[in-house]
Design a protein around this nucleic acid. Structure first.
Lengths: 246, 246
DNA sequence: CCATAATGTGTTTAATTTACGCATTAAACT
DNA sequence: AGTTTAATGCGTAAATTAAACACATTATGG
């Protein structure tokens, strides 16, 4: 908690800023948000990056981010920034972690809150306002600007964990999908191979897939059945995990 | 990422502060850290709270927190604040989540990063510099000051999850402990009852417990064997979870 | 029409979790 | 001192879940 004394310190620091901010800008803390947007295409997991326009990191790629406004909620800032940079709305953003090393940003002290999302590239058309915005295969993401590699790594790790515990993955698929689509998705995100038949059994046992009695169209092999995910049924289930797993 | 334009905004905002901070302090963002310290005593999970000294929240309890210094890492701030308020060092703090609703703090815009820890109350003597600092049974924690109830709830939830995936719990026990101690711990944190014999089997199967060939002393029942946790062996194991569990 | 490759549907086996049974040991009580 | 009580320690059987693998079916493409 912030004590009465602490509350006074807020003012004190700001008073200090009044004096020092004219000289240099290292005596206060700016707050930013970075959005890590994962997408799925060609059976590969991708991430949305933008080319850094800071000279120090010329040519390097970086995450989508910007400063939080003083009168704006943290979550609100994340949605605004995503919308501004990509045109994307109607996307669920989840806070992952906050990065606050003193010298992480060359422009001064900037603490950043990382938000992560998972979208269907086909179904969310990007408004590419900035033509330096590109989807990158997550396997080829290295050497990002700032500490963005660290942020990216953490988000990917978190994504891999989340996708095993919650049905996030369905955001990456079209409304109607085949079991092969679903398996490709999990294999791409988790970077593993799974047994097709056991995978199938697993999902049918969960009983959240609805058979649409439709088949795939225009595929170069025997068409598979199409399914959709039953979110209502899932929300009701609410099974609690208890045990010790390490 | 923070663009070149964004970097300029950092300065712009600070210039604004120069003007406005003299009038009111709502036009910049202050950053604080809150420490949620969990402990274990009398087979109950406890949390360290301090009485709020803000008039608005007179009589309510709140978390340990304070502002982050401009030249201090986020993690560093958490350790410093914990040390200052409790005398505790040599404690592992883990970041849980950042809370940034605009009006969460009456003193102005304060975004706070929550850090969580788990300690053995017996083995970490508190330097109670502030006599309004107390251990509370987590079951009786309600109606905290600010948005601290929300922060606390999130941390407890995270703790319950973490303790099932990592051997954090051993921090709460003495070096030498009985299986009953261990089970009490898990039952308290997870708020469930477990079968004594299966619990035992589970842990022996993991093979991280070292039999010390000693017995409990001064207990009012048949003494149990004492064990310690083999962290080295655990670190080597590094088993990766893959699968779908929802 | 045949080879190919993917889908759809099992079965069998192993591993893990769950639910108990029961002897042993020490403390507390009569 | 013997008996009751309550906890520890060890073990087994059933149920559930996960892993490994066999094979028929269906569409594509030559």
């Amino acid at each position: 908690m912030l004590t009465e004394q602490g509350a006074k310190t807020v003012k004190k620091i700001k008073t200090l800023q009044v004096i020092q901010s004219e000289v240099e800008n290292t005596n206060t803390i700016a707050l930013s948000v970075d959005c890590i947007i994962f997408g799925f295409d060609e059976a590969k997991l991708k991430v949305l990056l933008i080319r850094s326009d800071l000279k120090k990191y010329a040519g390097k790629w970086s995450l989508l981010g910007d400063l939080v406004f003083p009168n704006e909620d943290l979550d609100g800032a994340a949605y605004r920034i995503l919308k501004q940079r990509t045109g994307l709305s109607d996307v669920f953003l989840e806070q992952v972690n906050t990065f606050g090393t003193v010298n992480r940003h060359p422009a001064g002290r900037v603490v950043t809150v990382a938000y992560c999302s998972l979208i269907n590239i086909q179904h969310h058309k990007l408004n590419i306002l900035d033509n330096e915005l590109h989807w990158h295969d997550v396997k080829n993401v290295t050497d990002l600007a700032f500490d963005h590699q660290e942020i990216f790594d953490k988000c990917l790790q978190q994504l891999q964990k989340r996708v095993q515990e919650h049905p996030l993955g369905f955001n990456l698929l079209p409304q109607k999908f085949s079991l092969r689509d679903l398996q490709n998705l999990y294999e791409a995100i988790l970077d593993i191979k799974m047994d097709r038949r056991n995978f199938r059994k697993k999902f049918f046992a969960m009983d959240f897939l609805v058979d649409l009695n439709e088949m795939e169209q225009n595929v170069h092999h025997r068409p598979g059945k199409l399914y959709k995910f039953d979110y209502k049924k899932y929300d009701k289930k609410q099974k609690r995990w208890v045990g010790i797993y390490f």
